Amino acid sequence: MDVTALLESASLLVPEEVATENDLSMRDVWDYLAHDEWQIALSLLEELGDGRPLPLAFWEQLAEAADRLCLERSSAWCHWRCSEIRNGVVRADLTLRPVAESRRRTPISGHGVLRPMWDIGNLSPAGEALVSIAGLWVEDLPALEPGGRATVRLVPLTPAHWAHVEAGQRITMHKDRTVAGTAVVLDVHLP
């Protein structure tokens, strides 16, 4: 399937009445596709997809189109959204520890590369803290500096471990045994 066909196919999965904050709609997507403005159409479809839950096929087709257009950031985002649909997503307000209190000296990548350990309240049979792993995407920032704060999206590696997590809960991020950051859960959507 070529890029146009992928984007057209994804477009058919978006309800006609959906619009962005700027009142751009599916009609605009179709106009851009008619003029072979694939990158703009893809970007607009991503924005339309962020407004409401859309099926896995939508994000898979956008990911493939972004891959073919060599758009790294869009590709990473669309693949990330696929993993959110498969494994669920936990949104949280994360504050990293400052350099003086942490082993981390460099910013963390904001685009789903990091898969830190999280203390989410699970205990081992011996009663010790048992950490769970989740991929991390920083909303609206390419990276998060030590001491920085941002809304993040977490994709659990094992969603069942996160079943008890709820909005308002405080969880901690670990690089190793040391705490790298603290987050307050904003919302949870598990499969």
Rank of each mutant, 00 (worst) to 15 (best):
L45W: 00
L45T: 00
L48A: 09
L48F: 09
D50S: 14
D50E: 13
D50N: 13
G51F: 11
G51A: 14
R52V: 15
P53C: 15
L54V: 12
L56Y: 10
F58R: 00
F58S: 03
F58V: 01
W59M: 08
E60K: 14
L62D: 01
A63H: 10
A63F: 08
E64P: 00
A65G: 08
A66I: 00
D67G: 13
D67W: 13
R68H: 08
L69A: 06
L69E: 01
L69W: 04
L71S: 14
L71H: 15
R73C: 03
S74E: 09
S75V: 04
A76H: 03
H79F: 06
H79A: 05
H79S: 08
W80L: 11
C82W: 02
C82V: 14
E84A: 09
I85R: 15
N87Y: 09
G88K: 07
V90W: 04
V90K: 01
R91N: 00
R91T: 12
A92L: 08
L94S: 05
T95E: 11
L96V: 01
A100E: 14
T106L: 05
P107N: 10
I108Q: 05
S109A: 12
S109P: 03
S109V: 02
S109I: 02
G110F: 09
G110K: 06
G110E: 09
H111P: 00
G112S: 11
L114K: 01
R115I: 08
P116R: 09
M117L: 13
D119K: 15
D119G: 13
I120K: 02
P125G: 11
A126K: 13
E128T: 11
E128Q: 15
E128Y: 08
L130I: 11
V131A: 05
I133W: 07
A134M: 01
A134D: 06
A134N: 05
A134Y: 06
G135H: 03
L136N: 01
V138C: 10
P146W: 04
P146I: 09
G147Y: 11
G147H: 12
G148W: 03
G148D: 00
V152E: 00
